[in-house]
Design a protein around this nucleic acid. Sequence first.
DNA 1: TGTACTTGTCCTAATTTGGTCAAAAATAAT
DNA 2: ATTATTTTTGACCAAATTAGGACAAGTACA
Lengths: 99, 99
Amino acid sequence: MTLGQKIRELRENAGLKQRELAYQLGIGEGFLSKVENDQKPLKRDDLSKLSKLFKTPIDELDSLWLANKVYSIVRDEESALTALKVAEEQLKYKNFKNA
Amino acid sequence: MTLGQKIRELRENAGLKQRELAYQLGIGEGFLSKVENDQKPLKRDDLSKLSKLFKTPIDELDSLWLANKVYSIVRDEESALTALKVAEEQLKYKNFKNA
DNA sequence: TGTACTTGTCCTAATTTGGTCAAAAATAAT
DNA sequence: ATTATTTTTGACCAAATTAGGACAAGTACA
């Protein structure tokens, strides 16, 4: 599940057209289309708008947003998976240190 | 193990001073210091120089380089770990599709 | 045909990259 | 205890990249 997929799901379940949601967010429908197709990143502040609009927890949106960012940098990389593993270890080590 | 740590290890095992290695790479010693402390990213092209210089496989350097980049964006994030997991899933899904 | 969505081109503004240089701090040598 | 060497840090900078869109034209489809 990507952020774009999630947004589309929320929007469709709410019975909204792209143009309508785009208006709520203050962006154009073309841009929203790209966001839903994960071709453009959504401004992070807009996540809270989505959260309120669709009454969905912001945490999930936020981690999807971050995941998209991560994915976009490893997407075409040979060593993508190993890099993720290494990053994860570094993260755990840091959390361990500051525990 | 981060890229900076790896570079320092390689350099010290080769008995080089920062200034010497920095010269080989065509950068200043101050910058190299920051690289070894993971405060600045190293230019990706320089990895091959390191690989040749220290006769160490480029793959490892490369994945450490990428891991650093990933880590730098999730480092201070609340949802860091979940985001990594999600990104990993997206990656596996993509590899599955194009298999 | 009309409505909804997608895609390509283009743009500005913000951020990141990839450094330099000098000063400060730490370490080693005398 | 000084001095010399090595490393770290802070401030700054230009260049490259990404963010965050707009807009028009193209597609899909009922």
